[in-house]
Amino acid sequence: MSFALVACGSGESPSGSSGASGAPAGPWTFTDGSGEVVKTDKVPTRIIAHAGEAAALISFGIKPVGVYADEPVKTDPNLKNLDLTGIEILGEEWGKIDVEKAASLRPDLIVADWWPAEKAHSGLEEGVDEKSKKLAELAPVVGATQGKSILELANGYEALAKSLGAKVDDPAIAANKKRFEESVTAFKAAVATKPGLTVLAMSPADDKVYVANPEYAPELLDLQSFGLKVINPDAPDKGFPYWENLSWENADKYQPDLILWDGRSFTPTANADWGKKQPTWFKIKAAQAGAAIAWPAYWMHTYGDFATELDKLSTAVKAADENIGA
């Protein structure tokens, strides 16, 4: 552990909650993404965190005792470049968490994003293994909300780290924020050179095509706020509003100039492969023209990662042809 709970048997002020500098005493409170205020007598030290949330905490010097991810930690975009020695891996597949192993770590806090559309924390949503949900019985679950901006997540985890006693004045943290500001400026400038450019965030699958609803994808809302015209699908699925589902007959319902392809399935040859496999994929003119780039879908939690991804998107926007979909 990079920080220790100071053993002060008594006398801590009951009102002394989050945000105090130095090694904090208890009690500890934090407002979860759901709006619920979580209180504990002592400041949590043994944390189990979901993948991206763990990466965010680690960036502030807080090392969880265990993590669970939605894919192997070697490929998870948040974890693949991190040193995870000393951290127990409790899951490497969506919906499956080894709760027994988690219990043996004696956690006093679970850190996981709050997903407003599903009203659940990461790993505890509807559809996961029933056994996985028992994770929530081990300790309080808190997280920032997958709300209207990646910055909500980044700032939320900074606040959480601070309340847990992390020093958030590391120069690297400030440097990442500065880098992010520069990336945003560069991205806005790139978008300004292509006033007519429209993009669509998509995830093709064997039986249908999924079109992302920016309303529930914070990074897409951010891109919209930076001026990029990300198309809003007009009939998102009511039960699972992250997407509008298109049958392959309707793959060409929207005609963007550039496709933002779900980064979880994007490969350099994906567009050509799907063109061969699905008779209607190339009816999307942007696909026919090969105008597709990876979309960092639902994983970013830090200023640094967002800056890196924005730079890639700026390059793609500058190279894009804004008249393909017209």
Partner: peptide
């Protein structure tokens, strides 16, 4: 499939029983 996410995802599609996506 418990130990292989990829296999699970691919199998999920195959196991539904569908005429879609077959050409």
């Amino acid at each position: 499939v418990m130990t292989n996410v990829d296999a699970l995802n691919e199998l999920r599609f195959w196991q539904v029983g569908s005429l879609a996506g077959r050409y």
